[in-house]
Amino acid sequence: MSTTVEEMQQRSNAMTAAELAGGTESRATVGDVTVADPRMVCRDVDVWYGAKQAIKRVSLDIGKNEVVAMIGPSGCGKSTFLRCLNRMNDTIADCRVTGSIQLDGRDIYDRTLDPVSLRAQVGMVFQKPNPFPKSIYENVAYGPRIHGLTNRRAELDELVSTSLQKAGLWNEVKDRLEQPGTSLSGGQQQRLCIARTIAVSPEVILMDEPCSALDPIATAIIEELIDELRVSYSIAIVTHSMQQAARVSQRTAYFHLGDLIEVGETNQIFTNPRHKLTEDYITGRFG
């Protein structure tokens, strides 16, 4: 996966024409997609929605205890890619995924692997806060309960409180755990969703534009929280805000029309992008 910048520039120019013609040829990725200590390893992932290819030969590693940000213009496939990582795309009837995605060395699209157990290891936080219309307590306790993590009420209470503490919500809700989760503010709801996700103790947390429905204050709180969660989890976050990517992530991946254009250290991507498309995007020339 090592190509010189010059080569890439030439190819990207050629690709712009192919792109206009609606070409499906994939572009090679600039930068190193691998990490030394990967938790998830994706190689040559293609995703089709029916006849339309949404993701083209994308390879990317997600390391332990790091935050990978995925940025790119709307419709570039970053959310689609994220949803492949816990097989949420299974619910879409005509969605087809090829290539290999491994979690701790095990192919997650293997026939013998149950998507239910995968989702216990790879949690997800969605764009719009989506707490269950049940009590705050039930929202957090639901995952551990269905997976049978604890059977005793005391342990469950403990798990709920530590999850809410980790999500930075405990002090705000500890006196009203029986109130419905939907009665919280948007930012609190999103943190409740994060607490619900970490209550199952996943290894990886996927976040699909977690702050796009929140105000700047709530966003700042969540961003802080993401930074804290990095200590225990691997996090992949899709975001529309480049500032957010710059603030929370260690590595950044830039997607463009289903291609992974460039991957690198976040600092490098934002200060010294190597690909023309990346540069255009982060300097605001399009997207």
């Binding site: 949420m88 216990a120 949690g123 719009k128 269950f132 639901y142 995952g143 619900r196």
Partner: peptide
Amino acid sequence: SIREAALGVG
């Protein structure tokens, strides 16, 4: 979103 939330926690 309710279905996604439930599937998302496994």
